[in-house]
Simulated assay, not measured.
Amino acid sequence: MAAFGTQFMPQMALSQFDGRKWSAPAMVSSDHISLHPGAHVLHYASTCFEGLKAFRHDDGSVHVFRMDANIARLQQSTELLALPAFEADMLEQMILQALAAFSSEVPEPPGAMYIRPTHIGTEETIGKAAAPSATSMLYVLLSPVGDYFSGGLKPLRLLLEENGSRCAAHMGMVKSGGNYASALQPIMRARASVKADQVLFCPNGDVQETGAANFMLIDDNEIITKALDSSFLHGITRDSILTLARDAGMKVSERELSVDELVERATKPHAEAALSGTAAVLTPVGTLIRDGQEYQVGNGEFGPVTQQLRAALNAVQWGQSEDRHGWLKRVC
């Protein structure tokens, strides 16, 4: 299979807001969109998106995972970016319409159909640096994907960045392209200087998130992760993992975590750390790098609790265990 996220279905669902109303969603070619060079999104970054997956079960049926939560988060991002509002039912219809058209292309596990709803400002103006776009476009791309770690899942190396932030604090909970762009240079420098896989942003010693995933520390039967606020993305995979951890009787502590406490607890023999996200699910962290010094997390390997939680989430997604929380919606 092609590299993750580089293969697309030939059609996508699309609707446009003309300043008064949304057009009826339609399936259109996914190889291009038409935008004026002065479109608001190209100059003032009026863009947000989501990432979710649909999975094929053993009986051949296709189920989309936590679609309602992703739609609600895109509505939240839309509001925070002052883009035209849309009804949740319309985006659900678009996602299901696109999936129904290409249900036969949904891979078997561990593959999935990656779903990328995207909302962009389209007004033709370069005079609205301090005003929102009056028009917009909402579309849903589909990308069949294999295992994100097809080459094997190896514990990651994280550089702790205590001086900078991933993005502006009030924008952290918005899933917008600008937030990812602002993290690129620190990530590239970390890869070049200390061979880190990612940067864990910890402004003023406050452990937050990496450039593209939420962070969790696992100390025996306790998971510690930052409490929700506006400074970082409210991950749906994060929420799912924490829910399954509570189901398993683990203690979940959503609170402030300092870099000093992180390093102290992560270096215990049985400690684990992990990153959570839609693409990678739950990925182990084996090394923390701070001020040129490396700290091994636990035994530096893929720990048993991380394995257990990752397997538990996959089992629900793949229809191999009970969906106790109503996270799956059958498409066909």
Results as ranks from 00 to 15, higher is better:
Q185R: 04
A183H: 14
L141T: 01
N163H: 06
G177I: 14
G177Y: 14
Y180A: 07
K154V: 14
A196H: 00
A168D: 03
I187Y: 02
R189P: 05
S176V: 04
V199Q: 01
N179L: 12
G177D: 08
D197A: 10
L142A: 02
L184E: 03
V194S: 05
G178C: 07
A196K: 04
A196Q: 04
G177W: 15
S165A: 10
M137L: 12
E162W: 10
A196L: 14
Q198F: 06
L156P: 11
Y180R: 09
M173S: 06
G205E: 08
P203F: 13
F149Y: 14
R157S: 14
G164Y: 11
F201I: 07
Y139E: 08
C167H: 08
G152C: 13
S182T: 01
D147V: 06
L138E: 00
V145T: 03
A190P: 00
M171R: 13
L142I: 02
M137W: 05
L156W: 03
A169G: 08
A181F: 01
A168C: 09
G177E: 07
L200D: 05
G178T: 00
D206I: 12
L142V: 00
I187E: 03
G164N: 06
M171F: 15
D147N: 12
R189W: 05
Y139N: 07
A192G: 07
M171N: 09
L138Q: 05
S182V: 02
H170A: 15
E161T: 11
M137G: 01
M171I: 14
L156V: 10
S136T: 06
Y139T: 08
L159G: 01
G164L: 13
S136N: 02
Q198C: 05
D206H: 13
R166S: 09
M173K: 04
R166E: 04
L158N: 01
C167S: 09
Y148W: 13
H170T: 09
L159H: 10
M137D: 00
N163M: 07
V174Y: 11
P155E: 03
L156S: 11
R189A: 09
I187M: 07
Y180Q: 05
L142W: 15
G151M: 15
S143Y: 12
G177H: 14
Y139Q: 00
C202K: 03
I187H: 01
